[in-house]
Design a protein around this nucleic acid. Structure first.
Lengths: 149, 149
DNA sequence: ATTGCTGCAAAACGTTTGCACCTAT
DNA sequence: ATAGGTGCAAACGTTTTGCAGCAAT
């Protein structure tokens, strides 16, 4: 186990929800925390498969969902119908700007987003769970922007 | 043609982009503008099919994309990996709050969102194309909230 | 006459499910 | 012992693609 602190959080979460504590789930946790940047469930499955892991696709999907539920990972959607995850471990919350030409993802944080979602939820009679804020834009510096499509 | 004004906008857009002006595309435009609320591409295809239209699935997908490009429709993503569209025609811009329990969608608008996306883009050296802001929350009034899952 | 668009079906893609076996409790 | 998790493969739902014919320019 590479990250005992995160593992502890996960273990507690699993116990509380009467989910079983299995080695496969911690294998997924490790691989997910180790992954730099954003990744899809299938990416992680392939990565595990490549490194000889026996963990199944179903378990990867199931476990990532659990890790998002206990806030060790964030679930993201960049408008391409693929669910992506990202480690929350020791990182400040942030949002994303995606270049519509080259697909580059820039992270930013804006203090207004610390309060707005909750404020709006309350005003509408709802209790905030989470939010997603994505900006789609174009690189002004065209030299850095390698158009993909 | 139920909406000549929108049709005109679409016609101009198609011309400018050297896309052909075909009856099928206007059939899709009509059906899309007529649709209340949010809909997926396949929903619209089924709806057309039911009303005896000959328009194919491929054409529906292609046309909705074009309609989003020319801003007659907005493209939305509510975190379930389905692309949804919504008519922009004579409606003010707004964002969405989705109840994570019952799936209900509430529209809201907040003046800060008129300026924030552009402001953030500029600061990062990008040129705003569009943004998406979704709040996921829970109905406080549990009587109104019919939990789905 | 070109070239792009169409319908159709099949393929692709990410994701979920059914099942028999296994294992943490 | 038993509820729940696992691996595997097959199914699923949405979206994209390949292709031959067709129609807008």
């Amino acid at each position: 186990m590479k990250n005992e602190k995160a593992a502890e959080v996960f273990r507690e979460f699993l116990k509380k929800g009467k989910n079983r504590i299995t080695p496969e789930r911690f294998e997924v946790l490790d691989e997910a925390l180790e992954h730099k940047g954003h990744f899809g469930a299938d990416d992680l499955f392939i990565k595990l498969k490549t490194s000889q892991s026996k963990v199944s696709r179903a378990t990867v999907y199931n476990t990532l969902e659990l890790l998002a539920q206990c806030d060790l990972l964030s679930k993201r959607n960049f408008g391409d119908n693929i669910t992506r995850y990202e480690s929350n471990y020791r990182r400040q919350t942030h949002d994303h700007l995606i270049c519509v030409d080259c697909g580059k993802i820039v992270e930013f944080s804006d203090p207004r987003l610390n309060t707005m979602p909750k404020e709006i939820s309350e005003k509408l009679g709802y209790e905030l769970d989470s939010y997603s804020f994505n900006i789609f834009a174009r690189c002004k510096n065209k030299k850095e922007c390698r158009i993909k499509k």
